[in-house]
Amino acid sequence: MSDPTTIGLIAKAAISALSDERLRKGIGWTISAIMSPFILIIVIICGLLSGTANHNNTAIQLSFHGGAISENIPEEYRGQIEDMRNSFTMLEERIEEVNGQMEDGDSLDSIMVKAIFYSLYFASDQPSGVDQGKYIDCFVTYEERTRTIIDADGNEVEETYLVAVPIDTLPEVYTNIETIMGKATTYEDMANANEIYYRIKYGVPAPSEGDGFEEWGDWTHSITPEELEQLYHDLPEGENGSEIVKLAMTRLGDPYSQERRGQGNYTDCSYLTMWSYRQIGIIIPGTAAEQGRFCVNNNLTVSKEDLVPGDLVFWSHKPNGRFMNITHVGVYAGNGKVIDAAYSKGQVVYRDLFDSNKQVLYGRPHILK
């Protein structure tokens, strides 16, 4: 979606260029006459882009929250919004049915279900014609369970019944959507759904990589000279990976900031890994997800059992629509330790290799040199 603020500034600048008498005289009437139509075209295009962004935002809000649809909204958008509302009504009915088949207080997150549906089906032909039951089944599994009941004769008997269990990992949901619905999903679809979810549920943009992680234990932002000497002693001599570990360790205690990364000694998780690699002449992308994609696309992945110092470890702590939903990256330091810029600690730390169930990928870009 285009940024209306930026577009407005461009448009104002263009209009100013046309109306400024001194500017027109300064550049000459001939040039001004030649350029004027192009400036007007820019103003028109920018206005259209701004309108598109506004209509997209309005469509999301109206689809989720209802309300009167303004006559200023193009007829095409009006029809799509109305059809999406009908789809949401049917989805809510189906969600209520499936929730009735759940136990232990489980239920589907209706906003997430609808956010993904909106991302995949808005602007397609008749979203309300999608098989709602099949779609909802992408979010659950069904288990056979037994329970004891009293029959009509007053005897205790066991009966078998089905229980719906919500799927708690979005990658599995998206795999089901492709398999059950035949609907291919892109990382852009996932990112859009995540953005819609946060804006509808919390009224804020979706968090980017590194935000909002839970507290992790077994960490330190300082290390004794003896511990550092032992760490370096254990590193393989002459290996690129060993140099990367040493470089990453020089950033220990540096403050965490996504907004200011690269300014002074500020860093975030992916800037730390990118910076460490670039110091020895290896160029990797600037975000954790794209670093993971880079490793996969270039056959630079390894297994956890084969990790060596300097390898990259990738985590997925929450869905974000990026490659493999990767949200965090760190440098493996050997001996079950990792160096990473931790949001929750606010700085670069050296700690145990944490959250094994959230580790989704391991890469070795340091063999490129």
Results as ranks from 00 to 15, higher is better:
184 A>H: 12
280 I>M: 09
276 S>M: 02
259 E>L: 01
18 L>Y: 08
343 Y>E: 08
164 A>I: 01
248 A>D: 10
332 Y>D: 03
175 T>K: 12
179 T>M: 01
148 T>E: 07
47 G>V: 04
236 P>Q: 10
358 K>C: 12
162 L>Q: 07
92 E>F: 02
269 C>R: 06
301 T>I: 06
339 I>R: 14
54 N>L: 13
243 E>I: 12
299 N>P: 03
277 Y>D: 01
23 L>G: 05
158 E>I: 04
109 D>K: 03
197 Y>P: 13
226 E>L: 07
139 F>L: 03
230 Q>N: 08
308 V>G: 00
338 V>P: 00
214 E>A: 14
172 E>Q: 09
55 H>S: 09
253 G>I: 09
143 E>W: 01
258 Q>R: 05
324 M>T: 08
248 A>R: 05
32 S>A: 15
292 G>Y: 00
182 G>I: 03
108 L>S: 15
247 L>P: 02
127 P>F: 06
117 F>Y: 12
218 D>Y: 10
333 A>C: 03
359 Q>I: 08
177 I>A: 09
37 P>L: 03
104 D>K: 06
195 E>C: 00
369 K>D: 14
231 L>A: 02
222 S>E: 13
56 N>A: 04
89 T>S: 13
226 E>P: 00
75 E>I: 09
293 R>E: 15
106 D>Y: 06
75 E>K: 02
171 P>E: 07
270 S>N: 10
317 H>E: 06
230 Q>P: 14
282 I>R: 15
149 I>K: 02
